[in-house]
Amino acid sequence: MSPELTEIVLLLFGGIAISSFWLLINLVVTYHPYHNPAVPFFSVFISGAIAIFITAELSGNISTIEATRIALTNGGSGLLQILPFAYVVFLFFLLKASFRRRPQDPLLALLDEE
């Protein structure tokens, strides 16, 4: 596999790992007696474990802890690197918000009359 392709695959599985970790932490800290988290917990846990396993396979002979660190680091770095794209999308909505003219609200007009 070429280094570029390896990087893309590592980023993909890094994204899966960081997203799975985020969901697992969220499930644990929002637990309450009326919650039924077993199925979501195990499905997300398995997806994260598969991502870490594949990262370990692609990175050579490394331990699970090291593969977890690499996957989470890739995920975190990737998230930061796509911020400019998110920023462009955000700026589009910000431009719309800056220049829009809201229609006059009839209820507010009634208040003014009073």
Partner: peptide, 26 residues
């Protein structure tokens, strides 16, 4: 290249949504 992370982030969220739906229905 960093855009490759987007499907990676979305995949567990989709799995999670289906798992929650399954758990609620069962």
């Amino acid at each position: 290249v960093p855009l490759a992370i987007v499907p990676g982030i979305l995949l567990p969220i989709v799995i999670f949504a289906y798992a929650v739906q399954f758990a609620e229905r069962s």
